[in-house]
Every structure is written in structure tokens, then in C-alpha cells.
């Protein structure tokens, strides 16, 4: 059959569904082993966070697209959670190989890392369906409009610069991402670099300040946020 925009969009969604069909929406056995190897086991806080952010996501999703669509919000969050655990496991395997360590207590007990990783997974899911809408030009699917980036970081109260820190690792370890999706994540990166990371409450300014202090070049006449 000839490729059409609709067929291409459906194929993207089917590909995501196929990859995540075998993935779990709970930590896998391998992940639990990583959690058990930590100085402080992060399992409970991870499950609690996923549950709490799920409530926020579903509530905001329904507000954005209509209360009648709350079930769709739950489905999207479920897919995002599966991708989050899948990528988390791949990242840990990759870091284990790179650093030759098994104890990832600091990383796995860092709430910002988890929220960033989950946000990235959810952005992939949202964009997959968003791409479908843009390609199919179907009027009854325009409800996704309000969910485009940076919607996800706003509703999860995440700083754009923190999301930026996970995108590259996410792309590196997730082989199923389509070329279109990698381009989308790259666009998110550009948006962050060009404007979102430079908002006054961005953690980037603290990093710049720390960096200048480490270099012994702190200029007191000009605050970092100038």
C-alpha cells in the first residue's frame, strides 16, 4: 500500500505501542535490583512520585482537552510511565557499564532526575499523538493543541533546564525513537537553550555562579541574572 500521511502517523503510534506493549508500568526485576543496591532504597519514593504526578497529569490533561477525555489522559500517562521505567533501566545499565558501579543511590534518590525523565517520556507520548494530529489534519483531533511543549514542564512544575539534562541520555539509550521524534526532542532542546533556560528562576544561573566562583572570577559588580 502507498504511504499516506495518515498511514505514516498511525505507523508511528503503532510503533510506540509495540515497543511499550512488553514494557511494565511498574519497576522491573532488574530495576528493583538496582534499587536494592542503593544505600537508601528509592523504590517507595519513586512509586509515590509516579502516583502523585499521575494525578496532576490526568487533572491537567482533562482541563486542557475536556473532562470527557480523562480516560485518554490515563492511557497516555500509562504509556509515559512504561517508557519512563524502560529508559530508566537502560540509563542505569549504560551508567553501570561506564562507571563500573552498582550503587546509584544519589541519582535514584534525586527527585528532579525522576521528574525530568518522566516528563521526557510523557513528551514523547504526547508528541507521538500530536504528530498524528498534525499529519492527519483531522478536526476531531485538534484537542492536542494545548499539550504541545512546554506544556508538560509547566504542569509538572519542572524547570526547563532540568529537562534539558535528560534529553541527550534519553535519545542515546532508547533505540526505538523515530527520526521524527528525535527531531522533536531536539526542537525542545533548542527552545530550552534559546529562551526557557534563561527565565529568572532557572537553575542555570546558580550553575553559572558556581562555575565563576570555581574559576575564581566572580564579578561582584554584575549579578549572575543580568
Amino acid at each position: 500500500l502507498p504511504q499516506t500521511p495518515v498511514r505514516a502517523a498511525m505507523s508511528t503510534i503503532q510503533q510506540l505501542m509495540a515497543v511499550l506493549k512488553s514494557a511494565s508500568d511498574k519497576p522491573t526485576e532488574k530495576l528493583i535490583l538496582y534499587f536494592n543496591d542503593c544505600t537508601v532504597n528509592p523504590m517507595e519514593s519513586i512509586l509515590k512520585r509516579v502516583k502523585e504526578l499521575g494525578c496532576t497529569f490526568k487533572e491537567k490533561f482533562a482541563e486542557a482537552v475536556g473532562q470527557g477525555c480523562s480516560e485518554i489522559g490515563s492511557q497516555r500517562y500509562g504509556l509515559g510511565t512504561r517508557l519512563y521505567y524502560r529508559v530508566m533501566e537502560s540509563i542505569l545499565k549504560s551508567e553501570e557499564k561506564r562507571l563500573s558501579i552498582h550503587n546509584f543511590s544519589k541519582l535514584l534518590n534525586n527527585g528532579i532526575f525522576h521528574t525530568s525523565l518522566l516528563a521526557c517520556a510523557l513528551e514523547v507520548v504526547i508528541a507521538t499523538y500530536g504528530i498524528s494530529r498534525n499529519t492527519s489534519q483531522s478536526n476531531n483531533m485538534t484537542m492536542e493543541t494545548d499539550l504541545s511543549f512546554p506544556w508538560i514542564i509547566n504542569i509538572l512544575d519542572l524547570k526547563a533546564f532540568d529537562l534539558y539534562k535528560v534529553i541527550e541520555s534519553f535519545i542515546k539509550v532508547e533505540p526505538s525513537l523515530t527520526r521524527e521524534m528525535i527531531k522533536h526532542l531536539e526542537c525542545c532542546e533548542h527552545q530550552i537553550m534559546e529562551s526557557l533556560a534563561w527565565r529568572s528562576d532557572s537553575p542555570l544561573f546558580d550553575l553559572i555562579k558556581q562555575s565563576k566562583e570555581q574559576d575564581g572570577q566572580t564579578d561582584h559588580s554584575e549579578p549572575a541574572n543580568c
Binding site: R98, K165, V166, E168, K183
Partner: peptide, 21 residues
């Protein structure tokens, strides 16, 4: 991923970005 520009330095990973040893 051939068109994607990777910004992490050689030998650097996500642990460093979240201040982990």
C-alpha cells in the same frame, strides 16, 4: 540518531549532570 548533535563530553553521562559521583 545520526543527525542528532550530542553535547555530552566523551566519558560524561547523566550522573555528572545530576551531581552524582
Amino acid at each position: 540518531t545520526q543527525d542528532y548533535h550530542f553535547g555530552l563530553e566523551e566519558g560524561e553521562g547523566i550522573s555528572e549532570l545530576f551531581d552524582c559521583d
